[in-house]
């Protein structure tokens, strides 16, 4: 059963086309992350889903209910959609209890019990109910904002970069807590972020946006290892790209012959190797290369490598465990783990 259907949504601000015929289906109960660089239209799309903006064209439906049909839209307060912003947007004049209860009718039975249950759901102490928003830390504010949106039992939850205002250390733990809470409540969620690692770890569906278009959508693993184009490949992580010739089996490039799925294609193409696919050894077998530079990053380290001579010289970066880091100037042998990925032929 498909829940949210966005079809051919376009939106223009003056001369800029913020969204260009974007279509996306989100299945019930899934967690979708929309990623893209700033200005790619992801926040505009979210605001159209929430009902704060009207599209110029296209439709949005949720469980068969039409939310937007071109510029005619349903009011935001009638949609069953929760919304959590970057800074939480807690009402500063209300305490935590009143913030949580903002969407719950006053005459609802056992309102107090529900507030406590909500606090428990987002793993906060019920004693905080009497606090004011400014007395909470950033992470606590985000949890209250989430609980406030959950109180309405929304059919869909929209998260607009909710972790980006938090400290790096806190971000990871709040993100995990939020993912846990949403999974427990079984609510369909759309997260908008410009942080690809956040998107990869949070979502079970990923949609990559670029210049107002939906570049690719699918499972995070799929998109990371089988991107539709080089831009998506590089947006989702570091990658080494090589021109390659397609052989009967696999491909051949400056690194030598590599395994790859070619789908019976002929001629040339571009292949991608992720830095963690390179394996370095002191004795071989593999391609002989020299270490230009080593960047220590804690658990991992980046090793800049140089191979070949003169015109055929190539440079690429491997990522290996920092326990196995070579010295600058060392000679190493490079072998490849797994297959190279051959980009689909450009249309």
């Amino acid at each position: 059963m498909t829940q949210l259907v966005i079809s051919d949504v376009s939106k223009r601000y003056g001369a800029t086309l913020a969204l260009d015929r974007v279509s996306l289906s989100v299945e019930a109960g899934s967690r979708v992350a929309i990623v893209g660089p700033s200005g790619s239209g992801k926040t505009t799309l979210l605001r159209i889903i929430a009902g704060f903006e009207a599209p110029d064209a296209g439709t949005v439906t949720l469980d068969g209910q039409v939310l937007a049909n071109g510029p005619a839209i349903a009011a935001a307060h009638r949609r069953r959609i929760g919304y959590v912003t970057q800074d939480g947007a807690l009402f500063p004049h209300l305490d935590v209890a009143d913030n949580l209860g903002f969407g719950i009718p006053r005459d609802e039975p056992d309102r107090a019990a529900r507030l406590c249950a909500l606090m428990e759901l987002v793993e906060l102490d019920a004693a905080m109910l009497s606090r004011r928003p400014h007395e909470l830390s950033g992470g606590q504010q985000q949890r209250v904002a989430l609980a406030r949106a959950l109180a309405r039992k929304p059919a869909l939850m929209l998260l607009d970069e909710p972790f980006s205002a938090l400290d790096t250390g806190l971000r990871e733990s709040v993100r995990q807590a939020v993912a846990r809470v949403l999974a427990k409540a079984g609510i369909t969620t759309i997260l908008v972020t410009h942080d690809q690692s956040e998107a990869l770890s949070f979502a079970d569906q990923l949609a990559v946006m670029r210049e107002g278009r939906l570049a690719q959508a699918g499972r995070p693993y799929e998109l990371y290892w089988r991107p539709a184009d080089t831009e998506t490949a590089l947006f989702l992580g570091n990658a080494a790209l090589f021109d390659a010739k397609i052989e009967a089996v696999g491909v051949s490039c400056a690194l030598g012959r590599l395994a790859a799925e070619t789908g019976g294609r002929r001629g040339g193409g571009t292949i991608m190797l992720r830095p963690e696919q390179f394996h370095l050894s002191a004795t071989g077998p593999g391609l002989e290369a020299w270490v230009d530079d080593v960047t220590f990053r804690g658990a991992q380290c980046g090793v800049a490598l140089r191979a070949g001579h003169e015109e055929t010289e190539i440079r690429f970066t491997a990522q290996i465990s920092s326990l196995e880091a070579p010295q600058i100037g060392d000679r190493v042998f490079v072998s490849i783990k797994g297959a190279a990925f051959l980009f689909p032929a450009p249309r």
């Binding site: 704060f52 307060h77 919304y83 009402f91 949106a149």
Partner: peptide
């Protein structure tokens, strides 16, 4: 300026119609 538009949007996404948002959020702030 004490009432950023995000707060009014938050109220809308919590099911308050514009008139009640004005009373509950905009005016007190």
């Amino acid at each position: 300026a004490q009432v950023p538009v995000e707060l009014e949007r938050a109220a809308a996404s919590l099911g308050r119609n514009p008139a009640r948002t004005l009373l509950a959020v905009t005016l007190p702030l």
